[in-house]
């Protein structure tokens, strides 16, 4: 297939960026989107140009490294996928494809499609853990957890931290990311002890990082590759309100 690409190129956070046009021929429809980008980069390098920088690693949708806006949508037009799992058969021959980085005030751009998502790490650092040092654990089966609660905690814990929720949010809110971790841990008995402090600190850090308000538009759930539910956000709100009033 033939493609017209319009890719955001920007040297660094200080420079101005712009969409740059590329024509690409000979693309196989079974290629993944990132393999198409590899092909483009191969040509750019041999032409003496700088290849397009983008983050990627596992290429099977679990590491959360990749992420870009494809035709104006986070991870592209297909729901439930990361961009590494998007395949070229989803596009028509001769199509024009726009590629931009995930954008948010809290995700500064590094180069081209590469962004800095360390704000997510700092949110987890603020309390997204259980303080269980190595060696202090009790026998695992002394802590029964109902099947449904374990499954529900897993649903929240499945977040891969890619940032699509923020990129697709009209306010760049990190509510889905933050709430997924708050919910994961508060659903488990071993996570309840630190619940009050955790939610206040994580929400506080989320605000410090410059993420916006949650408007409950639910776009984040729609574009989440793991389908993390927006009800996690409600759970975080409940925990926050409870901790603020009673804590």
């Amino acid at each position: 297939m033939k493609l017209h690409l319009k890719i955001w190129r920007q040297r660094d956070a200080q420079s101005n960026g712009a969409l740059v046009d590329y024509d690409l021929d000979g693309i196989d429809q079974h290629m993944s989107f990132l393999e198409m980008m590899d092909t483009l980069n191969g040509q750019l390098i041999l032409n003496g140009d700088m290849p397009v920088e983008f983050d990627h690693d596992c290429r099977e949708g679990i590491c959360g490294s990749c992420g870009m806006m494809v035709n104006g949508q986070a991870h592209g037009p297909v729901a439930g996928l990361t961009v590494c799992q998007l395949h070229m058969r989803e596009f028509k021959d001769g199509a024009t494809i726009y590629v931009e980085p995930f954008r948010a005030a809290a995700f500064p751009l590094k180069r081209d499609l590469k962004i800095d998502r360390s704000a997510f790490d700092r949110i987890i650092q603020a309390g997204g853990f259980i303080s269980a040092s190595t060696g202090s654990a009790i026998e695992a089966n002394n802590l029964p957890i109902t099947h449904d609660m374990a499954e529900s905690a897993f649903d929240s814990a499945a977040c891969i931290g890619c940032g699509a929720c923020v990129a697709t949010c009209k306010n760049s809110s990190a509510a889905l990311f933050t709430s997924a971790k708050v919910s994961h841990l508060v659903k488990l008995p071993q996570g309840k002890l630190e619940a009050e402090k955790r939610v206040i600190q994580m929400v506080g850090q989320m605000d410090v990082e410059g993420f916006g308000h949650c408007s409950n538009t639910e776009a984040c759930e729609v574009k989440c590759p793991q389908g993390i539910s927006v009800l996690n956000i409600a759970m975080m709100n409940w925990e926050f309100n409870k901790s603020s009033l009673l804590g």
Partner: peptide, 10 residues
């Protein structure tokens, strides 16, 4: 397994 459960691994 004990350690992982204590950390909240579901």
């Amino acid at each position: 397994i004990d350690q992982a459960v204590a950390q909240g691994v579901p």
